[in-house]
Design a binder for these strands. Structure first.
Lengths: 138, 138
DNA sequence: GTAACTGCAAAATATTTGCATCCTT
DNA sequence: AAGGATGCAAATATTTTGCAGTTAC
């Protein structure tokens, strides 16, 4: 599973593995936390914001990454679990640091089961914790 | 507590109770779920978007309401619990309906305690559930 | 009278759309 | 050749800022 090439990884999500997409995926792989579109853009010498928007939108709709927005800032991170076009199982914790503003995916923290009232259909759950991260505390 | 006049309610959060603010608070009180800025704006015959932005920002910073953003749409709802300038205790569930796009605060659902790794300081936690709401299901 | 609030204009930012072009098969 | 992907320009939406006028105490 983890030995998949980037190209195979895209193909397995039915995403056409173009040069641009491979570069974006490669960049996202390197990140420890979630990054904004501006971060992605800055990582390329020359790039088109619009293409990047379309790239992350494609990635998201195919279940390759998820986006979270806090304080009017949208950030993107690769999905750790098995997501696909139909279902995002993004059941891990996002930690947003109020100091350095970084968003970190704490995949090791499990989310307790949450009871939803009758009549509601639950598709996905997103937990965002806010506070001060390890780095900023020390 | 619930017999506080709107004016007293603002004062208790150290918010100057101006006419505009009272109107916005009154409107928010009437809502069952969270509303967008456009919703607030539309509820007034004539109003200035900028003033409304400033109003909700003031409300939020004073702990009177909280905002949540999903799918690039920011919505606002009054805080149910006792929040203040220092701390938001916004520990209830937000349910976003993928069909009618409404956001509902499910205050009756309690959020289980979530363990945060050592070194992280947790200030607040936000849980957003996505799916199909009761109304759209039936 | 002073400080805070408001309204208007404008700037800054974020996101989307249209279209022509370029790849890839 | 055909479909999808990209780049550029421009439209749209969202949020913030500056400033002058007004209001409330």
């Amino acid at each position: 599973m983890s030995t998949l090439s980037l190209e195979q990884e895209l193909k397995s999500k039915s995403i056409n593995p173009t040069a641009m997409r491979l570069l974006v995926l490669k960049f996202l792989k390197k990140q420890r936390g979630a990054v904004s579109l501006a971060d992605i853009e800055a990582s390329f010498d020359q790039s088109d914001r619009v293409t990047l928007y379309r790239t992350v939108k494609t990635f998201e709709s195919k279940g390759l990454l998820h986006s979270i927005t806090t304080n009017n800032v949208t950030q993107y991170a690769l999905c750790a679990q098995e997501c696909d076009e139909e279902h995002h199982h993004d059941t891990h914790l996002h930690f947003v640091c109020n100091q350095c503003k970084k968003t970190i995916c704490l995949t090791q923290v499990s989310i307790p089961k949450i009871e939803i009232p009758d009549g509601f259909q639950l598709d996905d759950i997103d937990v965002v914790a806010k506070g001060v991260c390890k780095e900023c505390k020390s």
